[in-house]
Design a protein around this nucleic acid. Structure first.
Length: 273
DNA sequence: CCAGCAGCCTGAAAGC
DNA sequence: TGCTTTCAGGCTGCTG
């Protein structure tokens, strides 16, 4: 499940490969989640930005191709496929293909079809609610304990649910939320988190995301980067996916519960409500 | 405005 | 062995 470190890894690999590419044709799966791929035909890619878990392909006509990978989305480049960009000519789960003027194809695969594509005027995210209301980038400096506290104070949902909402901070998903809450010593069910604990949590969020990027992302099931390789951060996880195993801090068996239909693993002794 | 939740998806794994 | 059920979860859109 691509979260910020996985999306950033893909962005870094892809950007130098697609810069200045001219999109001459495209094809997509029939779902209206993917048909906007065709709106990018005729444009030149000038770079790739990222906001939270969204990839933002910059187009030369003052538009952006906004891509969300959902649960199982991945991008890769293929060479030597001629000028036919049909999805059927690629993989079973190919949802979009963009043909470049040099003969290469940018391919978007997404087994479970939770991903989404849109072409919008640059910066115009009014129709993409989560992106429109996205909180600060965690590794850019605007995200602090103070900003986190300001974003959650007065709200009644659990701290984990709020992290996943993308509003207090951009790019945190289920894996890195569990990891950050463990490092900060905060129970994921906590509904009141004061300023001091927000300081610790902000630091933990930055730490787990930066480590995730350094390790090339986390591969538990489907994630592969733009070169088709798995990440290595799964070996650095302290709680996610380790229910029943001893806490690395106190040896108490880690608990697994469900919060908002998401598997949540934490230590009942080390993490406080 | 906010909280809460169903629905979207497929394939692997578990259950019978 | 083979069929059925369960599980994974980010985001959207609806309801109260």
């Amino acid at each position: 499940m691509p979260e910020l470190p996985e999306v950033e890894t893909i962005r870094r690999q892809l950007e130098p490969l697609v810069r200045d590419a001219v999109i001459v044709a495209a094809d997509s799966h029939w779902s209206d989640k993917f048909t906007p791929a065709l709106d990018a035909v005729g444009s030149t890619i000038t770079g790739i930005a990222r906001r939270g878990k969204y990839l933002l392909f910059q187009l030369d006509d003052d538009h952006e191709l906004v891509a969300h990978l959902g649960m199982t989305g991945s991008f890769h480049l293929e060479t030597g496929n001629g000028s036919d960009p049909s999805c059927a000519a690629h993989g079973k789960h190919t949802r979009a293909v963009w043909a470049f003027d040099d003969g290469r194809h940018l391919v978007f695969d997404d087994t479970r079809r939770f991903g989404r594509l849109r072409v919008v005027p640059k910066g115009d995210y009014g129709d993409i609610a989560t992106l429109h209301q996205m909180g600060p980038e965690p590794l850019d400096g605007d995200f602090t304990g103070a900003s986190l506290h300001a974003a959650i104070v007065g709200r009644s949902r659990s701290i984990k649910t709020q992290l996943l909402s993308q509003r207090p901070v951009a790019g945190v998903g289920n894996i890195y939320a569990d990891e950050a809450l463990f490092l900060a010593g905060i129970d994921p069910r906590a509904r009141r988190v004061g300023r001091e604990r927000c300081d610790r949590l902000a630091d933990s969020v930055k730490q787990v995301l930066a480590t995730g990027i350094d390790n090339g992302g986390t591969t538990l099931r489907d994630y592969v980067n733009a070169e088709g390789d798995e990440g290595q951060n799964q070996h650095a996880l302290l709680v996610y996916g380790r229910g029943g195993e001893p806490c690395t801090n106190c040896a108490e068996p880690l608990s697994t519960i469900v919060i908002d239909a998401r598997t949540t693993t934490f230590c009942r002794r080390c993490q406080k409500r």
